[in-house]
């Protein structure tokens, strides 16, 4: 009886193998189907902002590498000098304007918001910009009052940067104590109080141009006493 069974198995080997393989395949299929069956998912989407740039131009969208602050005449009766610049960009996000300057010369800096006018629109008192590549003159009205701003790293003395705040520590710790750093080489940072929202653009336009006047002013004591040959570095920054 046993022999007959063994004989039968060996004869039917191929069929048995095929049957077992198909059973295994079906089981595997069922098993993996069961695994997929137990998978669950959640899905959401969001929008990504496109990177945008702010550019600083001179008057009449003139490309500049620096705002030319030369030619400040200390004999001027008004004791003020004005320079025009423009912040331009494609974003609708508000941006901030910051001014950083060293304190060798006791100038006071203020920023006025203005709009551009052509030669025939000018009124007395307007600030002239005559360095446009098209050769024309452009005029900008000086407003009543400058945009409010404040120094963010003022020290105890009203005209020197703080030597105890974290920014000073991070920047100058490599030089040792405060005594080894020239106090007037440490820049003061002037930040406008309120971020400026770009104007709503007419349909079809993507770039805005906001004009500003940088006013450099000084008082009589500077004319009389000195520090007239000193040099300062002034940086103008705009960022979103």
């Amino acid at each position: 009886m046993k022999n007959a069974l063994h004989k039968w198995i060996s004869q039917q080997k191929l069929r048995i193998t095929a049957a077992l393989l198909s059973v295994a395949a079906v089981t595997a299929l069922l098993g993996s189907y069961a695994w997929f069956y137990n998978q669950r998912g959640l899905r959401t989407m969001t929008e990504v902002e496109a990177p945008y740039q702010l550019t600083i131009y001179g008057g009449n969208k003139t490309e500049i590498t620096e705002i030319d602050l030369s030619g400040i005449n200390l004999d001027s009766t008004t004791r003020k000098a004005h320079f025009v610049f423009c912040v331009s960009g494609t974003s609708t996000e508000a941006y901030e304007i910051e001014l950083a300057h060293t304190t060798n010369v006791p100038f006071t800096y203020s920023i006025y918001k203005t709009t551009q006018k052509t030669e025939d629109q000018q009124v007395p008192g307007d600030i002239l910009f005559n360095k446009s590549p098209d050769g024309k003159n452009y005029y900008y009205t000086l407003g009543e009052s400058p945009l409010p701003g404040h120094y963010i790293n003022l020290g105890i003395a009203s005209d020197l940067a703080s030597t105890t705040d974290k920014a000073y520590e991070d920047t100058y710790k490599a030089y040792g104590s405060a005594a080894t750093v020239q106090k007037r080489a440490v820049p003061l940072y002037y930040l406008l109080n309120n971020p400026i929202t770009p104007p709503t653009l007419p349909a079809g336009e993507t770039t805005f141009y906001d004009y500003y006047i940088l006013e450099v002013s000084w008082d009589e004591s500077l004319v009389k006493t000195g520090n007239q040959k000193e040099t300062d570095l002034v940086y103008l920054m705009a960022q979103n």
């Binding site: 695994w35 137990n38 998978q39 998912g41 899905r43 959401t44 929008e47 990504v48 496109a50 990177p51």
Partner: peptide, 15 residues
């Protein structure tokens, strides 16, 4: 920023 306008997050949980 230049390449992506919308971003999809999909969470999948399996045993």
């Amino acid at each position: 920023g230049n390449s992506i306008r919308y971003l999809q997050l999909e969470l999948t949980a399996t045993e």
